[in-house]
Design a protein around this nucleic acid. Structure first.
Length: 659
DNA sequence: GGTGAGCTTCTTTAC
DNA sequence: GAAGCTCACC
């Protein structure tokens, strides 16, 4: 298949900075991969000097695969395809000294950083206050502000509080030899701004940048792009303002316009031909998104067939909805020989997956849940990771706190609080303080013994770490730390125990597959992976949030939970962010190639009580002529689905009745 | 002083 | 409907 004129222009334009406004399904990944080939094969740029930046690791992996297929016969050695955060991590691992970090520094995930914030806030601060301060702090960091700058700009008492916490928080992180997600971008930016030599070195190292999902860049990411691209502006950014769905975490769609101001010679190319969706689906998407104000309206068009109507299922409750979706998928699979992985169920929040999983399990439909509380969130995996972190970085207090309690070893909050006090006094991390006999001497003998026991195991593992692979270290510490034994005691049946050990083994295998690098470095990389990025789902129905679905496509898409208050989400309505919710819905619609199903329950359980649901206002924004509403009255209940799944549904109902 | 049982909280999205 | 907290128990 050849490129269309706009795509070709985007691929071949290399002489000035380029912005590609690419509508949904307009082949933007193709443009990026073709452009990589063009840069190497035609412009004779070394692959090692090209970086393609994506938003998720999953997107990075897919892009790398596609690029490598395309680059057969071309030397693609050293090509960088990664996320902004991975690039930042790579930068910091090389330039750690300039950043004031020691080798083996830790990456604090959202939980780690939340607990630091909690620790810094007045005792008894409620969850709202904590969340607000965390959000403001993260926002300030995403905007590239230092604590001092954040304090200067603070307008409200809460903002002042956040700026104050921010300052203390950074000191704390520095003491832990740790960085958080925001720092992975912010620190490289600060270093590149401060040191001309670094700028020169990195501009030489990366001669051309391609940025995917550009509409989701935040302030610091844009700054990083500018610093790396330099005045030459050797970059291509690809984005779509209609798919900007990350403003809540600091993404600034203004960056699209900023590009034109900062680079007057910016070339803009718009891709409007959609290669993905049936026309009906595309019309529905266009109609919905037309409700948002647009600076530069674009009109997506498609050469595909009209396709079938968009089906709207009105269901009685979440269980009924899940059952409907599951049986519809089974129908598609049986009748049309649709592969499971051609079907995706999309929802607003991770918690919505539960009833769906249940219904799919009962119909024995293989499914794969992306993100959420998957693998990396498993307690046993987090425990092993905490041990690995504290082995690599003795200053990582967050990891220490988790590791010391995995398994429980008579070191409780009181002991840890006292240890913390002494660590503060001596200006030591918890682990380093716990190594000292004078510190242990100040604790009750029993606690001191327990703590000392932990430190001995830790020291032994740390010594052993140099001589073995990260994977083997992982397996060894699982045994030697006592976690394996504790897990066996904890699990009632053998199967559960096996499964949880399997999670740890899976982690070990991930390390094996990740190849070179010390355990500490690999753990750092792992921190950037979401569950969705790591595993290959195989042939299974995909369950994921609308956010996670961006960039993907499926023949059959089910969007569930079209409830007012969920999609659009309550808090977004309150905060006047309805347009982003609409874009989210738009992203969901445009994932579908041939069939789109929308559904909502009439009643849901909330606060234990049954509450009536108002169907999403977005349903009213769809063109009524394209919709086929099913189930408004019981007699209309999808007959064919019942035929195919009658028996299973009876079992389903029985199961739900049990709960 | 650690740990587990039982009660109250608010429930987005994610690198 | 689960995570966080307090309280009683070991």
């Amino acid at each position: 298949m050849s490129l269309n004129p706009a795509q070709r222009a985007a691929v071949e334009h290399c002489d000035s900075p380029l912005l590609v406004l690419a509508g949904a399904g307009s082949g933007k990944t193709r443009v990026i991969t073709e452009k990589i080939r063009h840069l190497i094969a035609v412009r004779h740029l070394s692959a090692a000097k090209i970086a393609a930046i994506t938003f998720t690791n999953k997107a990075a992996r897919e892009m790398r695969e596609r690029a490598e297929k395309l680059l057969r016969g071309v030397d693609s050695e050293g090509l960088t395809v990664c996320t902004f955060h991975s690039l930042g991590l790579k930068f910091l691992q090389i330039e750690h000294a300039a950043a004031g970090l020691r080798r083996g520094f830790s990456i604090f995930d959202t939980d780690d950083s939340a607990s630091v914030v909690k620790d810094l806030m007045p005792r008894g601060s409620n969850a709202q206050a904590l969340a607000a301060v965390r959000a403001l702090m993260s926002r300030a960091k995403a905007d590239g502000l230092s604590p001092e700058q954040a304090a200067e700009r603070a307008q409200s008492p809460r903002e002042r509080e956040a700026a104050d916490v921010y300052g203390q928080y950074q000191k704390r992180l520095a003491a832990f030899n740790a960085v958080d997600f925001d720092d992975l971008i912010r620190l490289p930016v600060a270093l590149l701004e401060a040191h001309e030599s670094l700028r020169e070195a990195w501009r030489e190292r990366l001669r051309y940048l391609l940025v995917d999902e550009y509409q989701d860049t935040n302030g610091t990411q844009y700054a990083l792009l500018k610093l790396l691209a330099g005045p030459r502006g050797a970059f291509t950014c690809v984005g779509d303002d209609d798919q900007s769905i990350y403003a809540w975490r600091g993404a600034d769609p203004e960056n699209l316009h900023r590009l034109g101001t900062d680079y007057p010679n910016l070339r803009v190319i718009t891709l409007e031909q959609n290669y993905r969706c049936a026309r009906r689906i595309l019309r529905a998407a266009n109609t919905v998104i037309a409700h948002n104000p647009h600076l530069h309206p674009k009109q997506l068009w498609s050469e595909h067939a009209e396709g079938e109507s968009i089906r709207v299922f009105e269901c009685s409750d979440h269980e009924h909805e899940a059952e409907r979706v599951a049986s519809e998928i089974q129908f598609l699979a049986q009748k049309h020989k649709t592969a499971w992985n051609e079907c995706a169920v999309l929802f607003r929040g991770n918690h919505q997956s539960r009833p769906l999983e249940k219904a799919l399990q009962l119909l024995r439909i293989p499914y794969h849940l992306s993100g959420g509380t998957a693998f990396l969130e498993r307690a046993e995996v987090k425990d092993v990771l905490a041990w690995l972190r504290v082995i690599a970085n003795p200053d990582d207090d967050a990891a220490f706190l988790r590791a010391v309690a995995a398994p429980k070893r008579e070191v409780g909050s009181t002991t840890l609080a006292r240890l913390g006090e002494m660590a503060n006094q001596f200006h030591l991390s918890l682990a380093r303080a716990a190594e000292r006999t004078d510190v242990l001497g100040n604790l009750p003998a029993r606690s001191a013994n327990a703590l000392d026991g932990f430190m001995r195991v830790l020291a032994t593992l740390r010594r052993a770490a140099h001589a073995m692979s990260a994977a083997d270290l992982c397996r060894k510490l699982f045994q030697d730390s006592g976690q394996a034994a504790a897990l066996r005691a904890e699990c009632r049946d053998e199967a559960l125990f096996e499964r949880r050990c399997g999670n740890v083994e899976e982690l070990a295998q991930w390390f094996d597959a990740a190849g070179k690098g010390s355990a500490g470095e690999l753990v750092a990389q792992l921190a950037l992976l979401t569950a969705a990025d790591r595993d290959s789902p195989g042939n299974a129905v995909r369950l994921m949030t609308l956010h996670a679905a961006k960039g993907l496509e499926f023949a059959h898409v089910f969007i569930v939970g079209l409830e007012d208050g969920l999609l659009p989400h309550e808090s977004s309505i309150e905060e006047g962010r309805i347009e982003e919710e609409r874009r989210l819905f738009y992203v969901g619609i445009t994932r579908a190639k041939t069939l789109l199903h929308l559904s909502y329950p009439r009643r849901v359980k909330r606060f234990g009580e049954v509450v009536k649901v108002t169907p999403s206002r977005f349903l009213d924004e769809l063109p009524a002529a394209e919709l086929h509403v099913v189930g408004r009255d019981a007699a209309q209940d999808s007959e064919r689905s019942r035929e195919h799944a009658g028996a299973a549904i009876a079992r389903l109902r029985a199961l739900f009745a049990e709960d």
